[in-house]
Design a binder for these strands. Structure first.
Lengths: 337, 337
DNA sequence: GTGAAAGCGCTAACAA
DNA sequence: TTGTTAGCGCTTTCAC
């Protein structure tokens, strides 16, 4: 059975006008029960599927959202992408996925591609959050996790400062005084915010020595390995390392094992994000948990809410984080702030 | 500056017809250099972006591909999705991402959504590879990693049988005789193929005892943990475990650590996929590496190649795998078959 | 409550 | 080489 591809055909078969078929498809109230039933039956029988391109052209909306992230391979972003996709689907939207590979140029070309496809909104975790994007303004933009230049975008992210602060505060509680910092790319605001949280808390105590020089790098395993190798070779070796994401923290774990160190006996490690893997590595990872589900769902929400007009709406949303402490035995302890 | 939104406007400004503007946009040869320059300039100046919906409607193609996978959160699929997205982008296509959450029902609704959006092709890793999908046939379909019922789809996957076989062969070489099998969902063909590879190789030697009963479960960490707990409690404890993916293998690692076992001293473990994490866990994971890049790129290739007519084209593509042996010291050794 | 018809922005066939 | 125009499939106003 060849599926029918035009509303005209359906109208003909059902013996009604295209207008009526359209009204039925869109659930308009002013259609008689009789015609509605007839049209519905015809549609089902003919396996008819309305043409989204035509509808989009006519309605000026594609029921599609764009998501631009640095790298879907990063577990934090794949968790995020999943929650965005699920929420978008729940609302009848599709999600176009783009990886910027941490390049603003690639990012811009993705934006262009999305705009050409008339997406109804763009959610983006910018590669470099001090750069602005061209062509934006005709469509709702949500900056996710990372800031975006320009006044048009809404911004949603976690409490990076507070998260780092509570991690370091916990390490101090455990008695650590020499705590090292592994950061993400130095240019990013999230990196700076987490660093400030770290520094500010350490400033509250008196330390014998100065802090180890922070180590910056991409949010991946390798950075953690390199950072740890660097820190562990120091004369005044840190007893704890705070990493800016879980992948880095796992890299630190890896390097500590290679160096023959016990974790947490010889070295304490805290990560950031709380990806599923954190509860699986050996030993389990203590980390600052982001509310990834909420970040994803809310960003869809923002992208889809018509904000035009309501100038006073919140431009920046900061979601709370919580410290998840995992020990070799017993269940994880969640410490909110 | 308000960006211009119609080709008519551009035509007016440049003092030409819409036809000419269209020809310039599409790089048609028969336009004089003078007009081409004028139109190009006007477009750039007006920040004009052609409307993809209208073009798609007219051309019957959306320059968009659909990808349906069980779960982007699974590192194997996020690697795959990335390579698909990169290849699609390279060819000027966008990628719509959908998670089926391992449900055929969800899967079908994603297919419907994609068809309504007139995607030019669908790449799918089916949740259940014995189920067929409705509405397919109007668009090129590529079954990726997992088989799809129906004759219309192309199929591309790795050599699951050979991969499992070479893993088990390697374990035999190391002297293991009691090797356990952790499988993915039992209904999947990939699970069965990997199991056959495992069984067939073991059938070539004489074993004192019978094989441990295989353990099946989703492709995640937890399955590995549970499987290992099960196997390690056996009276006749296996000395090696072959897991059907790296996440499961990492779960086994986790459980072995909890049980106080040394890997590989007390227990050898081999995984499947070779996700980046495999080289980072402690100890590093020996695994069967899939050519994920090629899988992704080729599936885009298949989805985009007009196969209509060429009936003799290969319907099934099987990509070779290789065993990557990682030891506590030294670089990984790649053993192809 | 229903039908007729204009038009969303674009391309391609045809005419000039 | 360039312009004119029909029409892709749909929605919605307007008239009945």
């Amino acid at each position: 059975v060849q599926a029918i591809s035009s509303i005209i055909e359906i109208a003909k078969r059902a013996g009604v006008s295209t207008g009526t078929v359209s009204r039925v498809i869109n659930g308009a109230p002013n259609v008689s029960d009789e015609l509605r039933a007839r049209v519905t039956a015809t549609i089902a029988e003919a396996q008819y599927r309305p043409n989204g391109l035509a509808r989009g052209l006519r309605n000026r909306r594609s029921k599609t959202l764009g998501l631009i992230i640095p790298d879907i391979t990063n577990p934090f972003f794949s968790e995020l992408a999943k929650s965005v996709e699920v929420e978008a689907t729940r609302r009848g939207f599709c999600l176009i996925l783009s990886n910027s590979m941490d390049s603003s140029t690639v990012e811009q070309s993705h934006v262009d591609a999305l705009l050409e496809r008339n997406v109804d909104g763009i959610i983006i975790a910018p590669a470099i959050d001090t750069v602005s994007l061209a062509g934006i303004g005709s469509v709702p933009i949500v900056a996710l996790d990372r800031h975006l230049q320009g006044e048009s975008a809404r911004f949603i992210r976690s409490d990076n400062y507070g998260g780092a602060a509570s991690a370091v505060r916990y390490l101090l509680q455990l008695g650590h005084r020499n705590i090292a910092f592994v950061g993400g790319p130095e240019r990013l605001t999230i990196t700076k915010e987490r660093y400030r949280g770290y520094v500010d808390v350490l400033a509250t105590i008196e330390t014998a020595t100065s802090l180890p020089v922070p180590w910056y790098g991409p949010f991946n395993y390798l950075t953690g390995v390199e950072a740890a190798q660097n820190f562990l070779a120091l004369v005044d070796r840190p007893t704890a390392i705070f990493a800016s994401n879980d992948q880095q923290a796992i890299g630190v774990l890896r390097a500590a094992a290679d160096a023959g160190l016990e974790v947490p006996g010889d070295l304490s490690i805290i990560g950031f994000d709380d990806i599923p893997l954190a509860q699986c590595v050996i030993p389990r990872l203590t980390t600052v948990a982001q509310a990834i589900q909420s970040l994803g769902a809310l960003s869809v929400d923002l992208a889809l809410s018509k904000s035009s007009g309501r100038a006073l709406e919140a431009k920046v949303l900061t979601l709370p984080v919580s410290l998840v402490v995992r020990e070799s035995t017993g269940p994880p302890r969640v410490m909110t702030r």
